[in-house]
Design a protein around this nucleic acid. Structure first.
Length: 560
RNA sequence: GUGCCUGUAGCUCAGUUGGAUAGAGCAACAGCCUUCUAAGCUGUGGGUCACUGGUUCGACUCCAGUCAGGCACGCCA
């Protein structure tokens, strides 16, 4: 619908000889008396045309040639708003259209034929997922769903590192706990992993091996055992939330030599060197980010800074594999590359972007969604979380307490840039009275109506001829249909901005209008035309809600 | 100290490239179930959109500064 309005505005502008310099915006008016859609084109053009915006608006309206089946009338109001009023037949046909489209309603083809990769979670296997991690996980998953709805072929990827110091510390933490089980007294360092899950893993080893590994000093077994256990747990937790990755990308593969005899990491350095952005000093290999505008401020003076890619120990710093990893995303042919990560990685991606830019990649394909941290409040006290200290609330505990639907919903109902405070006590209390239920209840209610229609009126909802939509007439009916019509725009809007919560805001509006409709308009037991037309509207609402829930990853219960 | 994010109703938050009288849920108060699920609906109260300036026909929205909170500023990942 939006498209029809925009193209007609364009046509009318051309007719009066005006070339629009800005995008034409159609929005939903703040008050229903201003129509069903409005545009401020006339106002935005007023300055450059040096004409009264109301005059421009009137000139345009005079040129409009809308199908009266779609647009009933067009008004000029306020300082020059053009307000469109939809005709009843358009709304009726929308209901039919939704039912015919079914699961496809809301999908678009803007991403058709394009490949997208969404990288999210990407937690290293050093411990169970925390409440903080859950946010990025759910956000990433919803973004992937949104892109899929836009027609993209989406790959969901998990990038991880199972090497390096952190894993050695993890392995040794497990080993020490194991030795305790063997009856030895050990000093457990403060900077080792303190969480109870370490003991659980040690117990598992002890149960399998007894004290046979008591004198084992090589950490390989402990590392591999711990990693396997932890990864299994992470995947289980994610599965509870309906999150499944298509691809697990091991950072280690970037160190492995390819047929050329070089690793991806080597290649990055070589290519950056060819471009003149590599310097070797102090035994390390530096990326000359100073030439690309990177700087820090000290004592009021700006100092250009370079970035270490290979440490003097010969080990790459994590930035090098990060860059190399992204070159693989381009090599794999992705048109859209979305990275979802927490605010603590905010300083990392500019270096990656700089490097990729220098190497000639089209960095405009990369979109970064940074979510702010989640803090937890336990008994009214905010807790700072750390996997190392083991005091982080696990995502599993949260799911146990509030359920998968509420967990997903809570994470994603707020804009990613807000500092989300998860009060566990409150989350538990709210579970009975949760915002997600408002949406789900609308769905369950519709299912209830359809059941009753079948039982009491022997009416098979699916068999009702779609022509009955022409009897939709009441205000509540038309208001609801009008809102349903906006669903594809809402999906598009949420997908473009990578902000799933915008879809929630929309769906809330649908649920609200449905509940109002329900209150005013009975279905079962009404005259045939009324009953059937309303049943069609209810089914179209159910379809829209389902399609939205699918993107959000929450269930659509038939009874509550 | 520097960079990024945040500050909107008692609480948690929406607010579509600047637009019409700033919204929702929860909490409070008052109503609505012999009829398709009251996890719902209707109504009332509740606001210096952190503060101060600026930009213009118009600012919660853009710019500058101030205040408050979060995160990051390593040859850690």
């Amino acid at each position: 619908m939006k498209d029809i309005l925009i193209s007609e505005i364009r046509r009318a502008l051309a007719e009066i000889g005006v070339e629009p310099t800005r995008e034409i915006v159609i929005e939903k008016p703040s008050d229903e008396k201003f129509g069903d859609a409005s545009s401020n084109v006339a106002m935005t053009l007023a300055r450059e045309l040096k004409k009264n915006p109301r005059q421009i608006a009137q000139d345009l309206v005079a040129k409009f040639k809308f199908n009266p089946e779609h647009i009933e009338r067009v008004d000029v109001a306020g300082g020059g708003f053009i307000n469109f009023y939809f005709s009843k037949t358009l709304l009726q046909q929308t209901v039919r259209h939704i039912l015919e489209q079914g699961e496809l309603f809301g999908r678009s083809s803007v991403g058709a034929g394009k490949k997208a990769i969404v990288e999210y979670v990407s937690a290293n296997p050093t411990g169970p997922l925390t409440v903080g991690r859950g946010r990025g996980g759910v956000l990433g998953d919803c973004i992937a769903n949104l892109l899929e709805a836009q027609g993209y072929a989406v790959t969901r990827e998990y990038y991880f590192n199972n090497a390096g110091r952190q894993m050695r510390v993890l392995a040794d933490s497990v080993r020490l706990r194991y030795l305790e089980l063997c009856g030895e007294t050990v000093a457990f360092p403060d900077d080792y992993y303190q969480g109870g899950y370490i003991k659980d893993i040690a117990e598992k080893i002890f149960a399998e091996k007894g004290d046979a590994l008591k004198n084992e000093t090589d950490l390989t077994f402990f590392k591999e055992f711990a990693e396997a256990e932890i990864f299994k747990g992470i995947k289980q937790t994610l599965a509870r939330l309906g999150i499944h990755h298509d691809s697990f990308f091991n950072e280690n593969s970037l160190y492995e030599r390819m047929d050329s005899g070089k690793s991806r990491n080597d290649q990055v350095i070589e290519l950056l060197d060819q471009k003149g952005y590599i310097e070797r000093k102090d035994g390390a290999v530096w990326f000359k980010t100073s030439l690309l505008g990177k700087k820090k401020v000290e004592d009021g003076k700006e100092i250009p800074v370079d970035t270490v890619l290979v440490k003097s120990t010969g080990e790459p710093s994590y930035r090098l594999p990060d860059i190399a990893y992204h070159t693989t995303k381009f090599a794999r042919g992705y048109d859209l590359i979305v990275n979802v990560f927490g605010a603590d990685h905010i300083d990392e991606y500019p270096d990656v972007i700089r490097a990729l830019d220098v190497l000639g990649y089209d960095v405009s394909r990369i979109k970064v969604a940074i979510n702010q941290f989640v803090t937890t409040t336990v008994n009214g006290v905010q807790v700072k979380m750390s996997t190392r200290k083991g005091n982080a609330d696990t995502l599993d505990q949260l799911i146990d307490e509030v359920g998968p639907d509420a967990t997903r919903f809570f994470y994603v109902m707020r804009a990613k840039e807000t500092h989300l405070n998860f009060d566990l006590e409150l989350a538990k209390k709210q579970s009975n009275d949760n915002p997600v239920f408002y949406l789900q209840y609308a769905h369950a209610r519709i299912c209830g109506i359809i059941r009753v229609a079948e039982e009491k009126a022997s009416l098979n909802a699916d068999a009702v001829p779609k022509d009955f939509v022409k009897f939709l007439n009441a205000k509540e009916e038309l208001d609801l249909a009008k809102e349903l019509m906006r669903f594809p725009d809402a999906v598009n809007y949420a997908a473009n901005s990578l902000e799933p919560q915008k879809l929630i805001t929309y769906l809330n509006g649908v649920a609200e209008l449905f509940h109002k409709f329900y209150q005013e308009c009975r279905i079962v037991g009404e005259a045939e035309e009324t009953m059937k037309s309303r049943l069609l509207l209810a089914m179209a609402t159910r379809q829209t809600l389902r399609n939205g829930f699918k993107i959000l990853g929450i269930s659509a219960p038939e009874r509550m």
